[in-house]
Design a protein around this nucleic acid. Structure first.
Lengths: 342, 342
DNA sequence: TACTTTCGTGTAATCGATTACATAGTTAAT
DNA sequence: ATTAACTATGTAATCGATTACACGAAAGTA
């Protein structure tokens, strides 16, 4: 059995009270130097470890922060979490992971569970798009638990967020396709109730307009983020009277599906058709026909979200700050959109 | 401000004691039905939420379990974690993530930190190969905290593990290369102090012997799990007097490096050279020249590890069980090792 | 009627650490 | 010499929930 050593055990052994022990361990200046040393030595001798739960109960701070993501087994979210963990680790925080699987109910559950678990903050990428979970979000704010959104955010007063400039991401990707000489550029979007997809779409549209290309609604298809969805989408697009000669996809997976399908049909990439994706998934650069993609610097996003959280807890005295950090997307230009003659 | 409602608040409002409230909420049969109802109604009316920290302190159980992995932003580990989270979520456990970054010191720190945080169990993939952290591991066992290894394990009495049969993984991958008619099969291994790499190597060797191919030490190279490491390794191998005509790599990334380098040298895959990797990383199936790879069913591994943990906590009465679960690897045969004539 | 059960609640200790307040012993100041 | 001001430590409450034990009231038994 494990002998749980408490400050009372130390106190008994030294014939002093637990209060003195506690103070000595916390380096309270009122404690005589000799006692302090004695306590510290005895503590390490007895292999004393502070019980964080007791501390947490007393202080009301658990030193845990909750992270909610749609799923963890996606390179993007895993990388963000890595960034969060790395930034928070030196500050003594532990990271608790929750997944919503894109299910708003789960998101609501996760929020309540984390609050129940007395986390000191919640960092999340939003799943709920229809404001079904407003109660859950307001519950968090009511409890005064710092809430920070990353990537997918919501507009809630007093809530900070770290996102990338999706508009710009859409813009530069589309611009690059235009630079290659593409005239009919299609776009695969996601659920536009989510701002990220809306903004990428708007960036795409603006790039077209800025370059004298008329926007055509028929070129925009809403699809899932999967290889199959990409294949289906390009099938539909190729049946149009004037099929596109390029595509900007909000998902790298869909972009891959597009490429696979085009190859199947012997359409040459990038010569006859250019493709750009979004997220810079690892596989995009590994492919023989590497895929142009917009990088979201997930590691940096996670670090930044963590830093915003830290600022927030440190400055409880100041008025609540709402900080909106927007990271710049970076276009990684690869073979799928690089024509020789350009 | 958030009004923290406790059972004392409910007690005061109803003119009863906190003890009664607690019992009512816990459905204690000794409480009169009418009181029980009253308490439940009042609790929900006042929006009472149990403070898990107080409960944790009293019960000694935090309902948190710690997961330690080398890194989270690898598809394999992220998937394992997903499996763990999904299995444990319905049981009310939260998952705390720690990364070692392959650094034994960090691993030791993580172990102590998790114990300090009073986790109810630790599920981990081992980083330490030189037994530097024996103290940390024994500290966990001394505290009677269930410890379960997955994928990379250590031999410690009383510790359960969930691994895949790496020997078999190495064997079937190598066998497949042999079936394609390859005669000189090289092997890229990892740090053989880690059992997984040792076993994959042994499986490779056995497959050779079983098929009348003499094992040649020069064909075995120890390398990191990266594209560049793969390139370097194949460079060395091709300089041998009798260069290999196939390679089984313990890493998909290294396998990819090999392929890229071979293409660079205009060596035809799979006709002149066959390649098989390990881990079944997502990109292996996405490549135009898809890569044969051994799947480790990470999701299932995570689920299984979680289940072993649950069994362990439920049966504290029984004698400690040491359970060694070994999952079967599955070879995904793809283009990189599929010759037409076979 | 007197005595034993049973039922429903209250009392108070406990988990382990922190901390406001009290107090005994020193030292400094007038 | 007497009081003020420190110093170092002890006492006890607190965080919020659980639970062994105690006890009065109601019900059952002889």
């Amino acid at each position: 059995m494990s002998e749980k050593i408490t400050i009372y055990d130390i106190a008994k052994k030294l014939n002093i009270t637990a209060a003195t022990v506690s103070r000595a361990l916390n380096n309270n200046p009122k404690i005589k130097e000799s006692t302090k040393q004695l306590v510290l030595e005895t503590a390490s001798l007895m292999n004393y470890k502070q019980n964080k739960l007791a501390l947490a109960l007393k202080s009301g701070r658990s030193n845990n922060i909750g992270v909610i993501v749609p799923r963890i087994d996606s390179n993007f979210f895993a990388s963000v979490i890595r960034g969060i963990e790395e930034e928070l680790y030196p500050h003594g925080y532990q990271v608790i992971i929750c997944q919503t699987h894109e299910n708003p109910k789960r998101e609501s559950e996760n929020l309540y569970t984390l609050i129940d678990a007395q986390v000191d903050g919640i960092l999340m990428s939003v799943t709920d798009v229809n404001n079904e979970n407003d109660d859950a979000f307001h519950n968090v704010l009511k409890k005064n638990v710092p809430l920070i959104f990353f990537d997918r955010s919501k507009h809630i007063d007093g809530v900070s967020s770290v996102t990338i400039n999706d508009f710009k991401g859409g813009y530069i990707a589309t611009k690059q396709l235009i630079n290659q000489g593409c005239k009919c550029i299609a776009h695969l979007s996601g659920d536009q109730s989510l701002e990220i997809f809306k903004n990428r779409f708007l960036g795409y549209k603006q790039a077209l307009l800025d370059n004298g290309i008329t926007f055509n609604e028929k070129y925009v298809i809403q699809s899932k983020s999967s290889v199959d969805a990409g294949k289906k989408a390009i099938d539909m697009l190729l049946e149009l009277d004037s099929p596109p000669d390029a595509i900007f996809s909000s998902s790298d997976f869909a972009a891959l599906g597009v490429i696979q399908e085009l190859k199947e049909r012997n359409i040459a990439i990038p010569d006859d058709f250019c493709v750009a994706g979004f997220s810079n998934e690892p596989f995009t650069k590994f492919m023989e026909l590497s895929i142009t993609s917009v990088d979201q610097s997930p590691l940096e996003m996670g670090r930044m979200a963590a830093r915003v959280f830290l600022e927030q807890v440190e400055k409880t005295d100041t008025i609540k700050i709402e900080k909106k950090v927007v990271l710049a997307p970076e276009l990684h230009i690869r073979k799928s959109s690089t024509r020789k003659n350009s």
